[in-house]
Lab assay of single mutants.
Amino acid sequence: MAEAPPRRLGLGPPPGDAPRAELVALTAVQSEQGEAGGGGSPRRLGLLGSPLPPGAPLPGPGSGSGSACGQRSSAAHKRYRRLQNWVYNVLERPRGWAFVYHVFIFLLVFSCLVLSVLSTIQEHQELANECLLILEFVMIVVFGLEYIVRVWSAGCCCRYRGWQGRFRFARKPFCVIDFIVFVASVAVIAAGTQGNIFATSALRSMRFLQILRMVRMDRRGGTWKLLGSVVYAHSKELITAWYIGFLVLIFASFLVYLAEKDANSDFSSYADSLWWGTITLTTIGYGDKTPHTWLGRVLAAGFALLGISFFALPAGILGSGFALKVQEQHRQKHFEKRRMPAANLIQAAWRLYSTDMSRAYLTATWYYYDSILPSFRELALLFEHVQRARNGGLRPLEVRRAPVPDGAPSRYPPVATCHRPGSTSFCPGESSRMGIKDRIRMGSSQRRTGPSKQHLAPPTMPTSPSSEQVGEATSPTKVQKSWSFNDRTRFRASLRLKPRTSAEDAPSEEVA
């Protein structure tokens, strides 16, 4: 009796068929016929556990003709996506030579605008209408194809895939403007070719909807975003200037109206006075309405000098805001240009540092100066060695804690006790272990408590650290204090090793 083939788990290929790579489910599931010992083939499952149809090819690079078809379809799909992405970037994010197409579109729109203006002049109306009709045909074809291509290429973005995504893309403001202008152009052409009475009025009214094509030149909205950011950044200043200017306008108009309503027919109503105030304070000055009385002229002159300053403030605020924003954008561009080279330089330096163990090129690091100058660790070890030599091999803490019996001779020589300023008595072995921070803190506390006492003391002649007598400086308080830590004499004296002298005989010792 033939044995059933062993159940295979995992992703390994079956024996005897090495080139074939078959994806098997996580659990080997066989058909009921196979479990019962029949000759049925096992049921194939996909990666998600769903059964595959009987005629479906197995996924994998070596699955025969199905694999070749899959490779061809995958390559075609990649080319399709690449083309779609390229078209989308050309239309929505132009760079380099892609601006040539947008310059061509701008020339078409500008020519249409010029011809629309010439069509309103009686001398050039006939020729402009003929040229404009031909140009409209060209623009309908160009913009119609462009609109379709834009909607198709938007599928390269995830949020615009599918018919719902394309509809979302078509609802964008600039796409809506394109659609309105396209419909208006078709209506103008249809009305112009019919030759009816309505054609002339339709051409004159709907052609100027094509002015909206100038708005579509900035599809990404960079200028509007820049203007919005400047207004938002200086909103408080703008609101303040406009508010005060509006108050000056209504008060000036009302007072001039009261002064001129009886003697001047131009100011017969408050609305006429508001019109005069707006034209005057905005420095336009049509001259259609002028005050005639001396009181009205004085009020107009005073409020004009006051109001023009507030009406001119928004222009200066926006101008300075634009300058600052442009400078910030230039700085951001320079930062973006330098970020990648800086990151590459840091990575290269780290690779060199991690692979080169000698690091002989590091001549400006802490390790280099640590090898030249005595390190703080060596100074600490030197302090501890000196203290243990004086205390008979014991550390200062051990000397303080060691009990001394009554009447027993002390094995240590008597030492002079010292007192730290602002604290109780402490171990004499710690007097010379006072660090730089303690010395600086002690000097600052003395300056806070009594700076007036220092200038009363007789001035001391500054001497070099080499000429100081070591026996005289029994305490860190003898170090000359200065008002600034930048004094080199104080810094050098604080680094010197001060020996400890006994109370009975204080021989001067120098520590090399």
Rank of each mutant, 00 (worst) to 15 (best):
E126D: 06
S41F: 01
A343D: 01
V326G: 07
I308T: 09
P173L: 09
L324R: 00
N89Y: 15
G221A: 03
A199T: 08
N129H: 08
G195S: 12
G277R: 00
S116Y: 04
G96R: 15
S273P: 00
L238R: 01
F246Y: 00
N264H: 02
S235N: 04
L258Q: 06
R81C: 09
I177L: 05
F169L: 02
G319D: 02
K78Q: 11
V109F: 10
G34A: 06
K333M: 00
N85Y: 15
P53Q: 14
A184G: 10
A202S: 12
H234Q: 02
A56G: 04
W294C: 11
A191E: 11
V109A: 02
K325Q: 03
F174I: 06
Y80H: 05
S31I: 05
Y101C: 02
I177M: 04
V117L: 07
R168C: 15
E123D: 08
A128G: 10
V298G: 02
G64R: 01
T200P: 03
L145F: 07
F169V: 00
G16R: 04
V151D: 00
P53S: 12
L58F: 13
R331G: 00
F110L: 03
H292R: 07
E32G: 09
G40A: 13
R168S: 12
V186A: 08
V151L: 11
L299R: 00
G302D: 00
G55V: 11
L52V: 12
W152S: 01
I250M: 04
D178G: 03
L135F: 15
A2P: 09
N196S: 07
S73P: 11
P5R: 11
N85T: 15
G165R: 01
M1I: 03
L255V: 11
L26R: 05
M214L: 15
A252G: 12
T280K: 01
A18D: 04
S265T: 04
D266G: 06
A21S: 07
A312S: 10
I239F: 04
L23I: 03
I211M: 12
L227Q: 01
Q210K: 14
G64S: 11
E3Q: 05
R72P: 07
V183L: 14
F174S: 10
V103G: 09
G192S: 04
R43S: 01
T27A: 10
G62A: 13
L226V: 00
S111N: 04
A202P: 03
R20L: 09
W276S: 01
R8H: 03
H334Q: 00
G195C: 07
L281M: 07
P341L: 08
P14R: 15
T120N: 07
I239T: 06
L113M: 09
T290A: 02
Q122R: 09
R8P: 08
A312D: 00
G228D: 02
Y80S: 12
V24G: 03
S67C: 09
L127V: 04
A271T: 04
A4P: 13
E35K: 04
E260K: 00
L132R: 12
F254C: 01
M340K: 09
N129I: 08
Y80F: 10
L45P: 07
G287D: 00
G64D: 08
K172T: 13
Q327K: 11
I317V: 13
L48V: 04
P173R: 02
W294L: 11
P13H: 09
C69F: 08
V138E: 01
Q164E: 05
R81G: 13
H330R: 10
V215E: 01
C175S: 06
Y243D: 01
L212V: 15
V231L: 15
F208L: 09
G192D: 09
T27S: 06
H124Q: 08
V256L: 05
G16A: 11
E336D: 00
I244S: 02
S73T: 10
S63C: 15
Q30R: 06
I134M: 07
M206T: 09
G10A: 06
G46A: 11
Y286F: 00
K225T: 12
F99I: 05
C112F: 03
Y270S: 00
S201A: 12
I279L: 01
K172Q: 08
F106I: 04
F174Y: 12
R171K: 08
Q194L: 12
W86G: 05
A271S: 03
G287A: 01
G60A: 10
R207P: 01
Q210H: 09
G16W: 05
F251L: 09
F169S: 00
F174L: 14
T193N: 04
E126A: 06
Q210R: 02
G70A: 14
T282A: 02
P314R: 01
S253T: 04
S116C: 05
L9F: 05
K225R: 12
S253A: 03
S273W: 00
I177F: 12
L203V: 10
G144S: 07
G49R: 09
D178N: 01
M206R: 03
A259S: 03
I279M: 02
G319R: 00
G34V: 03
Q194H: 07
V181A: 06
A342P: 01
L255P: 01
A75D: 13
A25S: 05
I279T: 02
L23V: 05
L258P: 01
V138L: 13
L11Q: 04
A241T: 05
G70R: 10
F106V: 10
G37C: 09
V90M: 15
G285C: 00
G221D: 02
R216P: 03
L249I: 03
V186E: 00
K333E: 06
R93Q: 15
D17E: 07
A154P: 01
A56P: 03
I279S: 01
R219G: 03
L247P: 01
Y257N: 02
A170V: 13
F143V: 12
G66V: 14
Q332L: 02
A36G: 09
L115M: 13
A241G: 01
D218A: 03
V298A: 09
S67A: 11
P314S: 01
S116F: 15
F208Y: 04
S268Y: 11
C112W: 00
C131S: 06
S253P: 00
Q71P: 15
F106C: 10
G162E: 04
L47H: 08
C157W: 13
S119T: 04
I180F: 04
S153C: 09
H334L: 01
G10S: 12
V183G: 05
E237G: 00
I308V: 12
Y160H: 02
T280R: 00
T280P: 00
A191G: 03
A315T: 14
D218H: 02
G38E: 04
G287V: 00
A199P: 01
W294G: 03
P314T: 02
G162A: 05
S111C: 08
C156W: 10
A25P: 09
N129D: 11
S309A: 15
G155E: 02
A2S: 04
R82S: 06
S309Y: 02
G40R: 08
I317L: 02
L132I: 15
A259P: 01
G66A: 08
S153P: 00
N264I: 01
G40V: 04
C157G: 15
R339W: 02
V231A: 02
I140M: 12
E130A: 11
F335V: 01
L226M: 02
Y147N: 03
V29L: 07
R7P: 04
I211L: 04
W276L: 00
R150G: 01
G307S: 00
I121L: 09
G316D: 01
G222A: 03
P173H: 02
L209P: 06
G195A: 06
P19S: 09
I121T: 09
Q71H: 08
D266N: 10
F310Y: 02
K333R: 07
M214I: 12
R207C: 01
G321A: 00
T290P: 00
G10V: 15
Q194K: 13
S63Y: 11
V141M: 13
R219C: 15
A343S: 08
L127P: 06
Q347R: 10
R95H: 14
F137V: 03
Q71K: 08
T120S: 12
I177V: 09
G64A: 14
A2T: 04
L108R: 00
V230L: 00
E146D: 08
A315V: 02
A4S: 14
G302R: 00
S269P: 01
A323P: 01
V188I: 12
F254Y: 04
R7G: 04
S63A: 05
A128D: 06
A259V: 11
R82G: 11
A184D: 05
R161L: 04
W163R: 03
M340V: 04
C156S: 15
L135S: 07
Q71L: 06
F303V: 01
V298F: 09
L91R: 01
G39C: 06
K236R: 13
E336G: 01
W242S: 14
R79S: 11
I250F: 10
N344H: 02
E123Q: 11
G221C: 09
C156F: 10
G38R: 06
V117A: 12
V256G: 00
H234Y: 02
I308L: 03
R166S: 07
M206L: 07
Y257H: 04
S116P: 05
S320C: 01
A75G: 13
F303C: 06
E123V: 11
S201C: 01
A187G: 07
E328D: 08
A202E: 03
F310C: 02
P291L: 01
L247M: 15
V248M: 07
M206I: 03
Y147H: 03
